[in-house]
Simulated scan of single mutants.
Amino acid sequence: MPSHQALLVIDYTNDFVADNGALTCGAPGQKIESRIFNLAEDMYQNGDWVWFPTDVHKAGDKYHPETKLFPTHNVRGTWGRELFGGVKDWFDSHDDNEQVKLFDKTRYSAFAGTDLDLRLRERKIDTLHLVGVCTDICVLHTAVDAYNLNYKLVIHEAGVASFNQASHKWALEHFKNCLGAEIVK
């Protein structure tokens, strides 16, 4: 029987996680690496989809709204946009399989301006497991859109992080109390 769930590994890149990343959450983001790696492998072995919606920008893009809010980050073709650490190694060893895919996103939500919903529905996926960074920005906006599209949500607490711990904790409560997400410790 085909799987009906997918893991979305959101924005787990050098710019968001490495110590010298352009917009890093640093140690909290690095701490979740093994959880993401292990969950990706478990779900892959189970026949589930493991997708990497990954932020991408152009240097000097004066029309993108984030330009006013954040320093330049995740520029296409740069080290900063590469997946971080062991997660990159895992992806590189699996990306020839259709179960594993990295795709571009240009807004906080993995659904905004992408064909993610169509791809999920083609595969009859109804449950999304979310991990990555930042809990209170891209993970949150993806979760809200998924909720509004009627997906069941599973948030892996040990697989999400942010540079703002108060907002991280708030987002976890919001997932549970406003989006009906299952929070896995």
Rank of each mutant, 00 (worst) to 15 (best):
L140M: 15
D145C: 10
D96C: 05
K58Q: 12
T67K: 10
C138Y: 04
A161S: 09
H73C: 08
P65A: 09
I137M: 13
P53I: 08
I32S: 07
K105W: 04
D19K: 12
P2Y: 04
F84T: 00
V9Q: 04
N150P: 03
E182K: 14
G60H: 13
F52K: 01
G180Y: 05
D96W: 04
R121M: 08
A143T: 03
H94V: 01
D89R: 07
L149P: 04
A166K: 05
T142Y: 00
W51I: 03
L118K: 09
G132V: 12
G180C: 06
T142P: 04
V133R: 01
A158E: 14
D126T: 15
D126M: 02
V144Y: 06
T106P: 05
L130R: 01
D115V: 14
V184M: 04
I137A: 10
G80T: 14
K58F: 07
F37R: 01
P71G: 11
H57T: 13
F70I: 15
V56T: 15
A40T: 01
R107K: 13
V87M: 07
G29P: 15
H94G: 01
T67P: 00
V184D: 00
L153V: 04
L7Q: 02
A18G: 06
R76V: 15
A6L: 05
C25L: 12
K124G: 01
G180L: 07
V131Y: 09
C134Q: 15
N46G: 03
D136R: 00
E82I: 05
E157A: 11
V17I: 14
P2D: 06
A181F: 09
L69M: 15
R123Q: 15
F37K: 02
W49N: 05
F91N: 02
H94K: 12
G86C: 05
N38H: 07
D15C: 14
A143H: 08
Y44V: 02
A146D: 04
V131M: 14
P2V: 06
L23Y: 12
S34I: 07
F70P: 09
D96F: 04
G29T: 12
E41R: 07
W79M: 07
E173N: 12
T72P: 11
E173T: 05
G60A: 13
H94L: 02
Y151C: 07
G60R: 11
P65R: 10
V139H: 07
S3Y: 00
R119M: 14
I36Q: 01
G60Q: 13
E157V: 09
Y151G: 07
T54A: 01
V184F: 02
I36E: 00
R121L: 08
N97S: 03
G77N: 15
Q30S: 13
N14F: 11
A112V: 13
D42C: 02
F84I: 00
T127P: 05
L102I: 08
L116Y: 10
I137F: 14
A181D: 02
I125G: 03
H4Y: 11
D115L: 13
T24F: 10
